[in-house]
Structure formats: structure tokens, C-alpha cells
Amino acid sequence: MSTALSLHQSRKRKNSVMMALCVVAAGIGLAWLALILGALIYKGLSGVSLAVFTEMTPPPGDAGGLLNAIYGSIVMTIIGILVGTPIGVLAGTYMAEYGRFSKLTTVVRFINDILLSAPSIIVGLFVYELMVRPMGHFSAIAGAVALSILVIPVVVRTTEDMLNLVPNALREAGTAIGAPRWVVIRSVAYRAAMSGIVTGILLAVARISGETAPLLFTALNNQFWSSNLNAPMASLPVTIFQFALSPYEEWQQLAWTGALIITLTVLGLSIFARSLTGRREDR
């Protein structure tokens, strides 16, 4: 009787210990998020001023802003999304609509999932070999293409998933009144899956606006204002990389401020994107 009781107690004790450890693990995860965000706000907020958004990146030892880097980031992100989204949506459409049970879809899904997690620096090398080497110089357009290659797998994945969630009865209703397949896809399936597809695009924006590695040797960097897509262009992440590793205090401060801007943008976008799908699930 007493051994049974002590066995019961030791099992209960083991349970409490393990569950306490799980709580500690969750605490560690949350603490780390708080530590990183806290440091960003503490170090970055003091550098936020109007000049950050109106002045160019300064030479070493001078005051200045991040205007050309912010502009470059926005331009390359927009082009990357404009190039990557249609390809991603179309590929996702094939996988969910026309070729849902075809062998090609299985293969594409597998390869796409690998592209989704492939190291972004490899994409940078690829675009360097594809565009920068033949053209003979670094360019903003090469940077944008590198970003679009990162956009495609994200959009393919969410588009396929979201179209698969559209009930077949809706498609059948469309087909029953004589609409051809592509009209059904366009006016029924896309419309029903719209918020999910938009979420995927927003997540892709969030992903590429913080990417540094694929831009390092495609768009390179630029100390000055440039809107020439055929020339090197500054971007926020690459500028942060350069400034943070420099010995100059003004540059390091700008790097922290830039880091705060990027993080708030990216986190804001991903929370917004998630809230879109969150509403979907509740409905």
C-alpha cells in the first residue's frame, strides 16, 4: 500500500517537474522576444527624428538619415512583389484547380516547399550568376529579381492552400450555369479565397522587406540617392549591415534606428496578415 502510494507521489512529482519545465520554456521564448524588442526600442528610439526620413545616408562621422535606403527598400520590395505575385498565384492556381491530382502538382509542391526554406544567400548567388555577371555590374533590378524569387514560394503555398479550402459546391454551381473553368476560377474561387491570398502576399512582403543576404551582391549598396534601376541601390537591411559593423558612432546609431523601423514594419505586417486569416477561421 505504501509503495503504491509513493509510486503515485513520485509520478505526480515527475509530472509537476516536467510541466514546470514546460512553463519555463514558454517563459524563455517570451523573455527572448521581450529582450530583443526592448533592446531595439531602447537603442533605436533615441535616434528617431525627422532627419532619418528626410536626409541621405551620411559619410562617416557625419549626421544624416536613411532616406535613400528606405526608398531603395520600398522600390525593390514593390518590384519583387509585382514580379513574384502573379507567378506565384498562377502556379498555385494550377496546383489547386487544374492539376489538383496530377503528378506535376506533387512534384511542384515538394520543390516549392524546399525553395520556401532554401537559404536566401543561395538565391543571391543564383541571381549574381544569372544577372549581375552577364550585365557586368550590380543593379537594383537584380536585387528586385532576387527578392521576387523569395516571394514566389510563399505565394504559391498560400494560394494553393487557400484555393483548396474553397468548397467544390461553389465551383460546381458556377459550372452548372455554363461558366467555363477559368471564369469559375476568376469569379468564384479567387473571390472566395481572396483574404487568404492577400495574407500570403502580405507575409511575402514581411519576409522580403527584412532580407539582407540576397541583396548583398545583387543590388549592393549606394551611399547616394539613386532611382536608376540599372545601378546599385541602397536598401535598409544592407545599410544596417554596413553601418552596424562600422566603427563610427553616428552610423551605429542609424543602424539601430533602421533596425527598429524594419522590425516594426515587419511585425506590423505579419500581425495584420495573421489577423486577416484569424477572422476567416472564426467565421
Binding site: A26, G29, L30, L33, I36, L40, L267, R274
Partner: peptide, 25 residues
């Protein structure tokens, strides 16, 4: 949901932020 989302936010932070935080903090 909030805690799960917070942990997933860790995945959303760009890697360069981890870099700068790792180096200076």
C-alpha cells in the same frame, strides 16, 4: 493564441536584427 503568436513573431523578426542584437547586446 496571444502566446502562440508571440512565439511565432520571433520567426518574423528579420535575421539582421538578431545579428545586430547579438553583436551589441
Amino acid at each position: 493564441r496571444p502566446i502562440g503568436m508571440a512565439v511565432e513573431l520571433l520567426a518574423g523578426i528579420p535575421s539582421i536584427i538578431y545579428g545586430i542584437w547579438g553583436l551589441f547586446v
